[in-house]
Structures are given as structure tokens and as C-alpha cells.
């Protein structure tokens, strides 16, 4: 590497001019998403309860009464936490990147720069479709851990986000083209 490049790499940066994520206003996800999450969680409980019911039917085991008392609060708590968890999620679109936060007790903030996005997926499952919601997933090169997925957005918004992201990606130097090819079949 030539000396000129080494010098180039050390341009000083004024700390005060760096935009900060410390005070960003996040937009919440769609209102319906909280309801959807609770429904999904309910569905899981129904499947579990159905399984347990079948078990008692065929194996003729009667679960002890205390089990109900133990499970009831867990059931209610899980629904409440699911609801609050959905409400706690949010995203913020900036000019150069997208931020995502989640968590009630363990809060996590994640950011992906559009410059690092390899490709974008939109998806929605049957229940999501019923509510008019969808998910958007930003793939980066850091492996599956490094992908950012935001669920529970109105489909129009996911589409807008995608076109906004693609727009930002296209503005970049041509090297950073969005790759859609995958090598294996």
C-alpha cells in the first residue's frame, strides 16, 4: 500500500459533526401487529392445549389441579409480554441506514447501512396477509446473524422501504450492486 493511501486513511473527524443514534425517534410498527402477535401466541397455546388434551384422552392421565394454577398465570403473562413486546418494537428510517429496536427488559438496537445491504426480501404469511401486514428482511454479508428482519409493517410501507433502500443502494458506486444470484440450486 502506498504512503499516500495511508495518509488518506487518517483524515481527522470532528466528533461533534457525527450524526448520533443516541436520540432518534422510532416509529412504532402497525397497531394491528400487536393483536396479530397475541393471536399467534394464542394459536401456539391452543396447539399445546390440544396436544395435552389428546394425551389425557388416550393415556387417561388426569393432570393435577396445581398444574392449572401454575399454567394460568404463565399463559396470561405470555400474552401480556407478547403484546408489550410487539408494542416495544420500532424502526427508524434515515437517509443512509435503517434502525430497528426491540425488547422490553432486554432492549436491542440494530442498524444496517444501505451500503452494506446485499439484497432485500419481502414476505408475508397467511395470518399477516389477512391483516394486510408484511415483513421486510435486509440481507448483509455477515451471515445469517447479520440479517435484519422487521415484521409487522403494513405491506405498503414494506414496499416503500424497499424502494427507498434500493434507491439509496443504486446511488452508490457501481461496485455495490445488489446481488440476487445464488450459486447453488
Amino acid at each position: 500500500m502506498s504512503d499516500s493511501e495511508v495518509v488518506l486513511m487518517n483524515r481527522p473527524i470532528d466528533l461533534d459533526t457525527i450524526p448520533s443514534i443516541a436520540n432518534i425517534a422510532f416509529s412504532p410498527l402497525a397497531n394491528k401487529y400487536a393483536i396479530l402477535s397475541v393471536l399467534e401466541s394464542l394459536l401456539l397455546w391452543i396447539i399445546l392445549a390440544g396436544g395435552a388434551f389428546l394425551l389425557t384422552l388416550f393415556k387417561s392421565v388426569t393432570p393435577p389441579l396445581w398444574l392449572y394454577f401454575l399454567l394460568a398465570p404463565i399463559f396470561i403473562l405470555s400474552l401480556v409480554i407478547t403484546y408489550l413486546g410487539a408494542k416495544a418494537k420500532g424502526y427508524a428510517l434515515r437517509e443512509k441506514d435503517i434502525l430497528y429496536k426491540r425488547g422490553i427488559f432486554w432492549k436491542t438496537q440494530t442498524g444496517v447501512s444501505f451500503k452494506r445491504v446485499q439484497h432485500i426480501d419481502l414476505s408475508n404469511g397467511p395470518i399477516e396477509r389477512y391483516f394486510g401486514l408484511g415483513s421486510i428482511k435486509f440481507f448483509t454479508a455477515g451471515g445469517s446473524h447479520a440479517d435484519l428482519k422487521i415484521s409487522g409493517l403494513p405491506v405498503e410501507i414494506t414496499e416503500k422501504l424497499r424502494s427507498k433502500a434500493l434507491e439509496s443502494i443504486e446511488k452508490q458506486i457501481p461496485l455495490n450492486k445488489v446481488q440476487e444470484t445464488i450459486y447453488e440450486d
Binding site: G103, F105, W106, T108, G111, G142
Partner: peptide, 23 residues
């Protein structure tokens, strides 16, 4: 760096601490 995430547990938040992950 491809992606950055900052997490804070309940207790970490109280002490203004965080865990940083660089992908």
C-alpha cells in the same frame, strides 16, 4: 462492519451500560 447492534438488559440500563455486537 456489516451491521451493529446495541443491547441493554434491564440491569444494564439502570447502570447505563450496554453490550455492543459488531457483525
Amino acid at each position: 462492519v456489516q451491521r451493529v447492534s446495541i443491547s441493554q438488559s434491564f440491569l444494564q440500563k439502570r447502570n447505563n451500560l450496554a453490550t455492543l455486537t459488531l457483525y
